[in-house]
Amino acid sequence: MHKLKSTNLTRFLFFVLLGVALFFLGNRVDELRVYQGATLSMYVIAIASIILLTGYSGQVSLGHGALMAIGGYAAAITREHLGWPIWICFAVAVLVAALAGSVLGTAAARLSGPYLAGTTLALAVGLPSIANQFSILGGEQGLLFDVGAPPASMGADFTQYKWYFWIAALTALIVMWWLQNILRSRYGRTWRAVRGNEVAAELAGIHVGKSKTLAFTVSSGVAGLAGAVLAMTISTVSPSAFPLSLSFSLLTGAVLAGVSTLSGVIIGALTLVATPEIADAISRRLGSSENVTTNLPGLLVSALLIIVVLLVPNGPLEQLRSARARKAREATHQ
């Protein structure tokens, strides 16, 4: 098959078309699906931030849930205390999380795999305790994050969830479009070079430390945005909204998506949205005991993570592609 030449314009058009399709889809499905669409968009952004970091820059973070929390809190505080428009709150979320990420990333650039993983894990475990330290963060209850009702011009039957979905989906589309571009730019190539071989990259004139720090900063900013979107869909930020299991879920989503390619991100996001539903269906069949309902989602996510790492470590998409490439190669040899 002849590959369609991918230019900036065609990619932009693709995302515009996707947006139009989502617009019509959002009008046709029921409220629950619309809400799940908003969650899906949040996961797309969050997983993309992990893929950027792990797949393209070769660093692993177990603490992206914490960076999401930073973004969520930043957005909520801006909204509550300054009352700025939602878009500016989102931008603040990106900036604050990116700032935190750049501090962490400076340390991270000097750390290899396990050290970085442990450090970010420590962050994810410990960050919630900070919420109790400062009164501006609202302790265990957290803060309200109210993005406001949809504009009246949208019509009377335009629900709050639909408004969440629109904001979330539009944000996700913009982020994905931007990430696609940045990964094809000089920076994306630099990151991949560093992931491939640090020494070779250094010899080619790349500043390895700077490149890693930049990747971590960008990834953190995107994670912070995902945190703000998450805070919007549940209208609050609190320590319990960003549990350790969130960081784990994101990693599962990224591995399922295939960490080395951004295009699989929707698979990971769909799986994460579907898991609670599947778990719910199974636990209802098993008689809905409390043990089952609270633990089954976690069990499914972890089991999935292990299965994927063991069986299709590069993600199902990449596995299919390489299998097809192998077959094609065999065909030409004959």
Binding site: T54, G55, G58, R195, V259, S260, L305, V309, P313, N314
Partner: peptide, 9 residues
């Protein structure tokens, strides 16, 4: 690409 981080995950 994932070999380095697979054990962690």
């Amino acid at each position: 690409p994932i070999a380095g981080v697979a054990p962690i995950i």
